[in-house]
Write a protein that binds this DNA or RNA. Structure first.
Lengths: 210, 210
DNA sequence: TCAATTCCGTTGCAAATGCAACATACTTTT
DNA sequence: AAAAGTATGTTGCATTTGCAACGGAATTGA
């Protein structure tokens, strides 16, 4: 199944666990909206077949894709555990299947239940990782200039890889979207930084010079 | 103690629990750095006396305060559960006391341990709340214009309160810092939005008109 | 291999932003 | 009530950014 939420749980145990949780299987056609924006999130949804998107329709009609779910990925881990409403629609991109695990039932499992403990520990680790990821992104975004954002981002990747020369996992448009700036302005600033001798780059390969 | 991490745990139980966890009490003088930026975070630190700051020293020497800890608040819940290094120094603002709870010992507690389950559930809820808080902030920050950021922020607060007229919990400088923009530019844009008939405001009271 | 498409860099320009400096209103202190 | 201090609003200006448009490079697909 390869799902972080169930990591460490024996595959033969899983069906029994899901039964204990009264997990519901949701089979749906393309474009079915499983969960509407504004609805209360009561379940954790785990994708087991097909693909789904989390998307928001803006007031001007444009669509904002927040994330995509493929086999093994899940949504609601955070929202179900606050009393939050869903910030987006969960829509099937194709015919698909997912299981909904009720947060309440999860909480009602016996304290001594080993699987419950595993799931809880996994959930903590998932949320913790998400949290650090988000904090990192905020640090980039809080830089006021494009140069600042670029520097913050590149330093982060460099630190992660432990090298001054590294590949970034985004193309230009992707990087612009991630840093929330205009693509051409990004290119412009990258050139300037190269002219200033701060960095060098070729496609996805970057070098921090000083 | 009034600490979310221990919520639902009997006060008379707490000392025993802490002992089981081999929680260490750290007493420190003003300006002691309990945890250095770059160090691996192995503990959850709960403040029980005095106050602490999480701060980052920028390369230009300026100080960036990430958050403050007062009695009952804690740090490390997320980082200890990833293999992350601390993004900031944890420094005592005054003479203070905190307890360090080892993540590893927490994990080693017996699965049937009721307190372990409570702490885990609390931690999940804390991390989930944090995550939604951060996502909200990112949504504000990803707006490209100051007007967009203001609108995003005000709509959020309005939605939370369920009213078109509401108080915001930040003063102008605070709001500017939160939205990562210049204070005067923020004031400027607020005036413009009032001129455009979009909002009205007086000090911390705001009205969304359309 | 050629065509089509996508990606990336560049340019000019209008608009938005940050910054510094000052003015005004509001608070707190004495 | 006066004075000091703090918060907010305003203005002018230099700089940065976004936007639109274009051209070349690289990639993909037929």
């Amino acid at each position: 199944m390869n799902c972080k939420l169930f990591e460490g749980i024996n595959e033969t145990e899983l069906p029994r666990l899901l039964k204990k949780l009264s997990a519901t299987e949701i089979v749906c056609d393309k474009n079915t909206i499983v969960l509407h924006s504004g609805e209360k999130v009561k379940n954790i949804y785990v994708c087991i077949e097909g693909s789904f998107v989390l998307e928001n329709i803006n007031s001007d009609g444009s669509v904002n894709i927040i994330s995509t779910l493929s086999k093994g990925s899940h949504f609601g881990g955070a929202f179900a555990f606050t009393d939050a409403i869903s910030p987006a629609d969960l829509r099937a991109l194709s015919k698909g299947k997912l299981i909904a695990i009720s947060k309440d039932r999860l909480l009602l499992l016996d304290d001594g239940d080993t699987e419950k403990n595993k799931i809880f520990a996994n959930l903590i680790s998932i949320l913790a990782n998400k949290s650090t990821f988000l904090i990192t992104k905020i640090q980039h975004l809080s830089q006021r200039s494009i140069r600042g954002k670029i520097t913050s981002y590149l330093n982060e990747i460099s630190k992660q890889s432990g090298k001054r020369e590294f590949l970034i996992p985004l193309d230009r448009q992707g990087l612009a979207d991630y840093l929330c700036v205009d693509r051409s302005a990004l290119s412009k600033e990258l050139s300037k930084m190269r002219d200033d001798g701060l960095i060098d780059y070729r496609k996805n390969m970057f070098v921090i010079k000083y």
